[in-house]
Nucleic acid binder design. Structure first.
Lengths: 226, 226
DNA sequence: TGTACATCAGTGAACGCGCGTTCACTGATGTAC
DNA sequence: TGTACATCAGTGAACGCGCGTTCACTGATGTAC
């Protein structure tokens, strides 16, 4: 049970984050201004410093929150069924989340704003997002085209213990290199179509975004022998 | 033959652009400051206004130049051979250009900076970049997975005359919808892996970027029946 | 239940900063007779 | 070849702006006796 003061603090912190995200939504991370956030909450600028140490601290927290949110969305789509069906479910969750929160997606995956240093934890968080894809591919078999990539993944997983651990945590069975190969490819494809769409580059184009997503996942499933 | 004054003007304009690009290289478009550019050229801030109407004018010219450059790089890779080989050549040119000019690539394809309005010409320029891919796919045949996407492309090309013209200009023979399907997919895949790489997300990963590119193009060629 | 004290959210003034942009000007460069 | 004039690149001062951040403060809220 938290004290009333703590409860109030938490609530104001949440309101600050919300206003900050809204601001990022129109102008990117560079448009985030503490003074503007304060004004929107009906408060003077310095008041923010009671809740966040600095502008960068706020930005960092927004980014880590974003990773947690998308990771939760993907995790929630984990289920039963054929590997192919599971791939579609996970990809749909990722893509759907990004479209629902385009500003946050750009914050996570877009160009970092000038002078901002991404926190080291973000690598770990990104792995949480992609982790659920690993077991989907772990039981597959790479087609001939993907075999060269698998070879490189095999070396990677052998040389970097943290990667081996990551794969083991999500996909204890099956071949780690195959799991990584599929996951890298799904990441690249998802990011490609999602970021083009989130940036409005598909605007006025005659396709529904879900169609491209489906095609890309379907062909990836073929390649990975799912 | 241009006058000495004109020649001098052109040279200074080029130097300004160069310094501006270097600045964008470390900090994104939001880090572009006219005063800083001027200082780097050993000149006071207002002098820039003799050459560019405003900061946004400069940014616009950099973007349009960037499109022209990447379009030229792709065009230079057009050649003979099987469709599959031509696809690899074009994709390699695109990807290679992006890696050689990561700042510019992010300028073209990344999050626009706050308050900046992309010029309408940029749509036309982007079509010049992707155009050479159209004839590669025009003679292909979509696999079953891509068929739904092709159907949407068929409607698009029927409804938007500018798109039909674009396809006809680059791929007078073959099926326009198939050409568009392959081109959209190649765009999405290229942007995905290129932007992840340009943003350093693949850093410390055990794969050479060319491998992923090759695999993605190889599997796309399979899907499109090349 | 009432009083004394500690906590702490928020204020308002101030700091230095760099930004884009304007304006009247100086002085060198080029042009025309 | 020399002189008068026009062009125009660049200067320096100034504008208003919003930014992140600090600091001493006020006043309300919560706590302890």
């Amino acid at each position: 049970m938290s004290s009333p003061r703590q409860r109030y603090r938490d609530q104001v912190r949440a309101e600050i984050k919300e206003a900050a995200l809204a601001q990022i939504g129109q102008g990117g991370a560079a448009a985030l201004s503490l003074n503007a956030v304060a004004k929107q909450l009906g408060v003077t600028g310095p008041a923010i410093y009671k809740y966040f140490g600095s502008r960068d601290d706020l930005l960092t927290e927004l980014i880590l929150d974003g990773f947690d949110h998308v990771a939760a969305a993907v995790r929630a789509a984990v289920g039963e069924g054929t590997p192919r069906a599971r791939l579609h479910a996970l990809a749909g969750a990722f893509h759907g989340w990004a479209l629902a929160h385009p500003h946050v997606y750009q914050l996570l995956a877009g160009t970092p704003s000038p002078g901002y240093q991404a926190p080291p934890e973000s690598v770990q968080r990104a792995r949480e997002v992609l982790g659920p894809f690993l077991p989907v591919f772990a039981g597959g078999r790479c087609g001939p085209a993907a075999e060269t990539l698998r070879e490189e993944m095999r070396r990677w997983v052998e040389e970097v213990p943290a990667v081996a651990e990551w794969v083991r945590a999500f996909a204890p069975d099956g071949d780690p290199a195959t799991a990584l190969t599929g996951t890298i490819m799904v990441w690249s494809r998802l990011h490609g179509l999602t970021s083009l769409e989130v940036q409005g580059q598909f605007a006025g184009m005659g396709h529904r975004s879900a169609t491209l997503l489906t095609v890309e996942m379907e062909t990836l499933a073929d390649t990975m022998g799912l």
